[in-house]
Design a binder for these strands. Sequence first.
DNA 1: GATAATTTGTACGTATGTATA
DNA 2: TTATACATACGTACAAATTAT
Lengths: 139, 139
Amino acid sequence: MVSPDQPWPPGHQELAEILRRDIHAGRLAPGAPIPSDRWLEETYGIGRNTVRAAVTLLRAEGLVVRRHGQATRVRQMPVKQPIDLAGVTRIEVRMPSPDDRDRLRVPDLGVPVFEVHRRPGVVELLPGDRWFVPAPGAS
Amino acid sequence: MVSPDQPWPPGHQELAEILRRDIHAGRLAPGAPIPSDRWLEETYGIGRNTVRAAVTLLRAEGLVVRRHGQATRVRQMPVKQPIDLAGVTRIEVRMPSPDDRDRLRVPDLGVPVFEVHRRPGVVELLPGDRWFVPAPGAS
DNA sequence: GATAATTTGTACGTATGTATA
DNA sequence: TTATACATACGTACAAATTAT
């Protein structure tokens, strides 16, 4: 964790950038807990709401996962599987609705979904953190 | 806009669901402004922070776009173009970092990006709201 | 062009509830 | 049971960008 070097307290955008750097640099590894709201408050001398606004940004970017009552953690990327391209007419991508997330068992924000359009008019929804589009020839 | 029928004021999750329904039902059309924070506060009898939490959810879901000083609007989807599959080894999807958004000129949250892996080791980034993966054979 | 009103952005403090360790 | 950590929600204040007058 990077200690505050600057004399003024960070805003929520700045705090988000600090945590982003720590994650990308590996100082906060996948699966590792990030500091608690309270620790960040006291360490950086900022309000709780500011801390939460920062972490909310990181959630939307898919960098961290929050669980009620547990420490917020850096997202762990599962191994991705190739999408079966048989009969595919097109694949789009979008953010899921809460209903979509329930269906797909993806409780977290920040995970886009593939919208796989197949033959008869069937649309399959696949979480973007578990699937990828393979090379067109290699099916 | 749906008026509050229930006697108790909605929480931010409930308000988000109300707005979500209005958007999906077309009562709030793409490009149309949604009610201001202040209007939502007074109409539903809730605090500003609660209103903003609701709209923040919709932002992360890619449903609305906020611009400083302007009304928040329902996102308008541009026409999507097919990704050129020549030399593609795989295509993944993820949320962009703020830097990615700057590069791609995608100022808004809630827009995933395609990570197109091509031959030599080249990775191309394409906004998910402007591109789609076409049928493998139809290139 | 200048001013005022509107709207979103940012940030503080406080309080209480709920899930987990 | 206790402590920790996140979830939700209120109120307040001021800044900044845009729009209307």
